[in-house]
Design a protein around this nucleic acid. Structure first.
Lengths: 227, 227
DNA sequence: TGCTTGTGTCACCAATCGGTGATATCTTCT
DNA sequence: AGAAGATATCACCGATTGGTGACACAAGCA
């Protein structure tokens, strides 16, 4: 065994490993102390490494945040929201309101189960930095892809871009707020029951839009779906 | 003219005036530098006064923020959203969807025209402090009052608490985001045109809910309203 | 063996933060 | 006029921040 391999085991001089420690520490600081406390000192301390290495390996904290952005899947993939090719075909055969509500149900679940994404999403409202910009870009691309898919599923005539933004805006906001408060305007937003009411209401609203073809009017269909 | 009145003019030793300067400075720092930069040093500097007076007159920054909360109308009154008693009666005679959309249109305008409210609303997602808690309370009370009024206006059967929270959540989120970005999921949220699309879509969604009494079904009414 | 290069630690810097004690100055009352 | 109390300023504290230069050590090559 040569010395290089030996040192690798003992976590001594090993640049890639140190870089990985720093990238990982970004996520840990975000999770434990939040974006407001994310700084070179906190990250270096969390990684157990000197802060000067942040400047050497990533130029500055922005560079390190960009590396973290590339390392993590903090946004749901289209697979997670729409499923694979087969599942997408199945979605298209469903009544529009059901498919629409199902996608937004998955969207809400995806965000609510990603505390780090909620932290970044929340910090987006305060400041634009390397990490929030990275999130903006992937979200913008995903949003357009989602809109493109939904437009293939025989939607009734309406401003679907505006409607989708209303629902995703509401989901973003209520998911973010549910980290700090449990009740919003008298309604519980911290448990699954409250979110079931929200998703059900989205489906109700969409389900009752008039279609251009009355034969495929989906009104009064049952509202059960996956949970 | 006695010395007290003379000194008041020259802004020398005058406790109420100094307190007012500090309270005012809170709003100015929020507007110019944001919540993240709000601290005793910044406020005192902005007020042109020594920071020790914050502790003397308000205990600490929290106390000063509470005083600021009492001084400012950073939330729309029920008059602004619903109008006076006469206007409310008129609202009740309108088709439900129109009244509902009109209230939310005013709500969106009220928030979008209050940059300081948006700043606090945005910081609510990060931290709970004296100011955000004050905003929570007034918002919670206003939300319940709004729900109480809407329930008097013959709404079709639905989970109106959930629906109202979806729309107000969306308005909060998109209003906050429009301070940092102009486009959300391909749609402009920074100008009045984009918001017109949002409000119109809200009215469309609500307008098509089935009523329990078909005689007052509002479907296919025209969608024009005040701007 | 020596030399260079890569890797990491340490000590320090100026700036800013929240917070406090000592002191100066103004106001008011006697 | 002079004492007493309210009002405001100033100088300082320890802690923390982002950032940098000097140095120690290990790896690999000549």
């Amino acid at each position: 065994m040569n010395r290089a391999a030996d040192n690798q085991k003992h976590n001594q001089k090993n640049r890639p490993e140190t870089q990985a420690k720093l990238v990982k520490a970004v996520g840990e600081v975000l999770a434990e102390r939040g974006f407001a406390k994310l700084g070179v000192n906190a990250v270096a301390r969390q990684a157990g490494v000197d802060k000067v290495l942040i400047y050497r390996y990533f130029d500055d904290l922005d560079g390190l945040m960009q590396a973290y952005a590339r390392s993590s899947d903090f946004w749901p993939s289209s697979i997670e929201l729409l499923g694979d090719a087969e599942a997408r075909e199945q979605l298209k055969t469903m009544p529009f309101a059901k498919a629409f509500a199902l996608v937004f149900r998955r969207y809400a679940n995806a965000l609510r189960s990603r505390p780090l994404t909620l932290e970044i999403l929340s910090w987006e409202t305060i400041e634009r930095n390397a990490l929030t910009i990275a999130l903006e870009e992937v979200r913008e691309a995903a949003g357009l892809e989602l809109m493109a898919f939904l437009s293939e599923t025989n939607p009734p005539p309406a401003d679907w871009q505006a409607i989708a933004n209303i629902f995703s805006g509401a989901i973003h906001y209520l998911a973010i707020r549910s980290r700090k408060i449990t009740v919003f305007s008298g309604m519980n937003i911290a448990d699954d029951e409250g979110w079931e009411r929200l998703i059900t209401s989205i489906e109700l609203l969409v389900d009752n839009l008039p279609t251009d073809n009355p034969a495929i009017d989906n009104r009064n269909k049952d509202l059960t779906a996956e949970t």
